[in-house]
Design a protein around this nucleic acid. Structure first.
Lengths: 349, 349
DNA sequence: TTGTAGGCGTTATCAA
DNA sequence: TTGATAACGCCTACAA
């Protein structure tokens, strides 16, 4: 407890500045906040000088007490997982800064309780906006509770947007998972592949389902039968790509291509293929997803689907910071094929 | 401006809770803050119930107004560059959460002015601690000004620590650049290499200098002459690794190994070597630095030097959050060799 | 055990 | 143009 200071001018607050400048609190405040209220040149300079010499830094807490919501965007990751998260965060920060907002970062690490804990913390901080980032598994109770919590926040003036996340009743900015997967599979099909193995991401996540639908659509548009036996669920890590590849080959020795829905899994496929003495793309064509850093350094360089990390971040921040998204909207950012060298026509035997 | 509400019980503040529970503000506050002050069971429950039904979330700004510094650590990156930053941020967050602190994130993007801008913002927010992360180029004026700014912050009760950053008069948590580089070069030397090319990071950064010293030390301990002609400055990106490799070969065709001080540059070396028709490690051994995601997926898998990203983050957060580091201290985290398959004995010609 | 009242640093209203 | 002064929401001596 700071010693009772009825004395105004010891701290480094506005009072101190005002006193040193020999003006009232109000005047000091006016010049320091750049208010439109006119202040005489003389006093203004005295205040500025006093502030400078006292190294005055306004107290944001005190300010927000009167002001209400703060220019802070709370970014809540359901789970920070590897991939291109760094670029994402950087883009988030850059965009927020553009508008003079600060970023507060939290990661629930996949833990629902923790997610609510952070939501509370953000509300306590009176952050002006909350961005829910990264897909979460589907769960009815959780969803309901989440929506309730968010609704309360919004009622008090907060803004909410979802980024790369589905099923939240607010504006969402999502990648075109359907289109991305579709173009990947069509690419394979157009090269002549028919027996295509698919290693998916976790099915509990909406994005994975969209990608699967996109893949199905591609088969459909090529009038090629879809074979569930050629689909295996992975967890996005390289090890599941490796196992997936092996299981796939044991089920379908005639397979000529694999579409792995993450670059890491694609790398797992590379490993398994090498272990089997298979050449990529000669014996097996491979396509990944995300266009992460590893894609271009694999050999052969991996053909993959781009992921609009930066666009997603920009869109989401812009929406809440510039207070667009008054209407609930859904913006889909395209994911395109990045053609490198891991696809070739199937070898004719 | 919220309509003048002399009426206490409309908002969702403490007053509303107190009123609904039929108790005083003080009582409500006491039970909601978990104060040690005893409150009768009856009133406590009424307050809890009221808070619950009103969906009361305390206003952190108001709290901090009386409390002073906040449990927020401001993380200021001089420049967020690729590498293992994501893990770093995640570790930062995890560790802060452990102690119940929040993370506020800022990235100066290499811009000095912006760094000061954020420092101010953090001070305005009354964050309890500031972590300066990531190396900054050396510049006298900048340093002086930075130190002044930080000193003022500390005087007001803030904590400052440097993470993977040098030359700031506070506790610092740094990787053992010297030792890491030394062990890399000694590894090469022990395998019989003598003509070793070195592609450094930017010399304006202290860490690069330490690595160069470590490399020199290795030569020294092997009684092998150091040749400045075999040292080239890069910028940590793959393209500079590529050019570096080419220039090195034109200067020293007898070179049998290259130590690139970042994995990305090592990849550039792989590219250049492949373009020359050289086999790695048969014709050229390569060692990188950082043990980033790409190192293990290159072919051959890259022998590299690990970087204590997570330890660094943990150490730094722990130091300020648990208020260790009352004394200025310097903690060096080891960097060790991660042996994979990019090094072999030089080919005897 | 409970309540009253003053203070935390700013902003904004209203007189002067 | 300037200056008192009342909020802002909460915490905590201090008094009851």
């Amino acid at each position: 407890m700071p010693a009772k200071r009825s004395n105004p001018a010891d701290g480094s607050g506005l009072a101190a500045v005002a006193q040193r400048a020999g003006v009232s609190l109000a005047t000091a405040s006016r010049v320091l906040t750049g208010s439109t209220h006119r202040v005489s040149r003389d006093l203004r300079e005295r205040v500025l000088h006093a502030a400078e010499s006292l190294d005055y830094v306004p107290n944001a807490s005190a300010r927000s007490l009167s002001a209400g919501m703060r220019k802070i965007v709370g970014v809540l990751f359901h789970d920070m997982v590897d991939g291109r998260g760094y670029e994402h965060i950087r883009a988030l920060e850059t965009e927020a800064d553009r508008a003079g907002w600060l970023i507060m970062l939290a990661n629930a690490g996949g833990d629902f309780e923790k997610e609510f804990h952070y939501l509370r913390a953000f509300r306590a901080e009176r952050v002006g906006a909350i961005i829910l980032s990264g897909s979460a598994p589907y769960d009815d109770d959780y969803r309901a509770r989440l929506n309730r919590e968010l609704a309360a926040y919004v009622k008090h003036g907060g803004r909410v947007v979802a980024c790369a996340r589905h099923g939240i009743p607010f504006s969402e900015f999502v990648p075109d998972n359907f289109g991305g997967a579709r173009s990947a599979v069509e690419h394979l099909l157009s090269r002549g592949h028919r027996r295509i193995g698919i290693i998916t991401g976790p099915r509990a996540i909406a994005g994975s389902l969209d990608r699967i639908d996109g893949a199905k659509k591609a088969f459909e548009s090529y009038d090629t039968p879809w074979d569930d036996a050629l689909v295996i669920e992975g967890d996005a890590q390289s090890s599941s790509g490796r196992c997936g590849c092996e299981r796939l080959f044991s089920r379908a020795p005639d397979m000529t291509a694999i579409f792995a829905m993450s670059d890491d899994m694609a790398f797992g496929v590379y490993e398994a293929a090498t272990a089997r003495g298979l050449q990529i793309p000669g014996d097996l064509s491979v396509i990944g997803y995300n266009d992460s850093a590893i894609a271009r350094v694999l050999s052969p360089p991996l053909t993959t689907v781009s992921y609009p990390t930066v666009e997603l971040a920009r869109g989401a921040v812009e929406a809440c910071v510039d207070d667009l998204a008054t209407e609930r909207m859904r913006v889909v950012f395209p994911s395109g094929l990045v053609i490198r060298e891991s696809v070739a026509p199937p070898r004719t035997r």
